[in-house]
Design a binder for these strands. Sequence first.
DNA 1: TACAAGATCGCCT
DNA 2: GGCGATCTTGTAT
Length: 200
Amino acid sequence: MSSRLLTREELAIDPVDAAQLLLGAYLEAGDVRVRIVEVEAYRGGDDPASHCYRGKTPRNEVMFGPAGFLYVYFVYGMHFCANVVSLVDGVPGAVLLRAGEVVSGEDIAFSRRPASRSAAELAKGPARLCKVLGLDRSSNGLDLTSASSPVRLYAGEPATSVRSGPRVGVAVAMDVPWRFWIDSPAVSTYKRGGKRRNSA
DNA sequence: TACAAGATCGCCT
DNA sequence: GGCGATCTTGTAT
C-alpha cells in the first residue's frame, strides 16, 4: 500500500485532471483509510454548479486557496461533502469526493455508519464518505498534504480504466462529463442527473 | 441585504 | 428507508 503523501504541486492542476489523479488515491482520517473510487470535478467561474461560480465568500474561501486543502461544506442541513482543492492560490477549483472503499479501520467505519449492510456501502456516497471519515465543518481547511494533519491524502496506484460521465445531482452543466470513477463495488449506481423540479 | 446554517421533499435502491 | 452541490430562515455585517 502506498504511503506517499500527495504534494501540493501535484494537485495544483485543473480539477478535471486532479479528479483522475485522486482516483485510486487514499484519504486517511484518524484510524480510517479510504480508497477514492469516485469523484467529480468542480471549477470556479465557468462552472455554474460550483459554489465558487457566484464569487468568493468566507464559506468557500478554501476553494480559492492553494491546492491540497480539504473543503468540507454543509448540505441539506444534515450532510457534509468533502472536496479536495486543486489549482493554485486565487483560482477556485475542487474535486468532490463522491465515494470510496474503506480499506482500513472498517470497524470504526461501521460504528459510524451502523446502517451500512456491507463494507462497500460504508463510503458509497459523498455524505457517507464524510461520516465514515468523521469529517465535519471543523475539518474544513485542513492541509491534506501535511504529514502532521489529522486528514491526509496518499498517492495510490495509477488508476486504470477510468470512466467518466455527467455529474450527479447537478441541475446545470449536465453536458459536461466531469464525473470520474473506477471499477469498484463502492461506486454509487445512482447516476441520474437532474433532480428536484422539472428540469426538462 | 448577504452569507451560512438548518431543514425537507423527491428520487433513489 | 436513505441520500442528496436545493430551498428557506436566522444571524452577521
